[in-house]
């Protein structure tokens, strides 16, 4: 299936601007997308995959959902990672 994704994280990497199409296997969940994103920016987030998964979430079609939410063809996903400080 194909979904469109944008990223608002400390390191937006290859998903940097606008919504870009991303292919995922049928049955993929938010967690799979987050892992795919993490793998696409190797070593650049300055944290382990587990740490990233605990600091990131996703809005699917403008609803923030849990990591186990199944994705569907045509979904519009916003990957969010918060930052500390200020």
């Amino acid at each position: 299936m194909e979904i469109t994704v944008t990223v608002r994280a400390m390191c937006s990497g290859s998903f940097a601007s606008g919504y870009a199409p991303v292919s995922l296997p049928e049955g993929a969940r938010v967690r799979d997308l987050l892992e795919q994103y993490y793998d696409s920016v190797p070593g650049q987030l300055g944290m382990t995959k587990e740490e990233f998964l605990q600091s990131a979430s996703a809005a699917v079609n403008q609803n923030i959902t849990g990591h186990d939410t199944p994705l569907q063809d045509g979904d519009k996903v916003l990957i969010l990672q918060t930052a500390e400080g200020g």
Binding site: S57, A59, I64, L78, A83, G85
Partner: peptide, 14 residues
């Protein structure tokens, strides 16, 4: 800087 997190933080309801 820390401003880099603002948009994501707001959309994440943080």
């Amino acid at each position: 800087g820390t401003a880099g997190g603002a948009m994501g933080n707001v959309l994440a309801n943080n």
